[in-house]
């Protein structure tokens, strides 16, 4: 239990450091990548290449295991269906991402760097997530 908490903390630190090193924690850089029609900065494509190439190995390893190194069950998503919720959600996420240049991870890191604007974004994001829970609860009631 304690080990999984320490691991989660360390993984969060490594993830956040990766976002800082790569430039993804800087919305200006992210928007430079999303601005295909302007002066395009291809850097973020290489962030994805580096991240996917590394994580790919881990997922290969994990596919041959049923438990983690600590003996807990591996929780890998199993769904394969592509539905309207997935599609609309992803399309909407891209719009929000393009508006400010923030996705959830980089916003948390920029918040930690003391950026007030990142804090405003994160609070709004939490409100949006809360709205999702309220809508879902109302639908199920």
């Amino acid at each position: 239990m304690l080990l999984t908490l320490v691991s989660a903390l360390v993984v969060g630190l490594i993830f956040g450091t990766g976002l800082l090193v790569s430039g993804m924690a800087n919305p200006e850089k992210v928007l430079g990548f999303l601005d295909l029609a302007g002066h395009w900065d291809p850097s973020l494509a290489l962030v994805m290449v580096g991240a996917i190439a590394t994580a790919f190995v881990a997922f290969r390893l994990a596919s041959r295991r049923e438990r983690t190194f600590l003996g807990d069950p591996l929780r890998v998503p199993t769904r394969n269906d592509i539905d309207g919720r997935l599609l609309l959600g992803a399309l909407g996420f891209g719009i929000g991402w393009g508006m400010a240049g923030f996705c959830p991870g980089p916003a948390l890191v920029a918040l930690g760097a003391g950026e007030l604007k990142a804090m405003v974004f994160v609070v709004a994001m939490l409100a949006g997530m809360g709205l999702f829970e309220l809508i879902e609860r109302a639908r199920q009631a």
């Binding site: 992803a90 399309l91 996420f93 991402w97 409100a127 999702f132």
Partner: peptide
């Protein structure tokens, strides 16, 4: 942007 990212990433 934050509201849209929050609700959309959950959906």
């Amino acid at each position: 942007a934050g509201l849209i990212v929050g609700i959309s990433t959950r959906y």
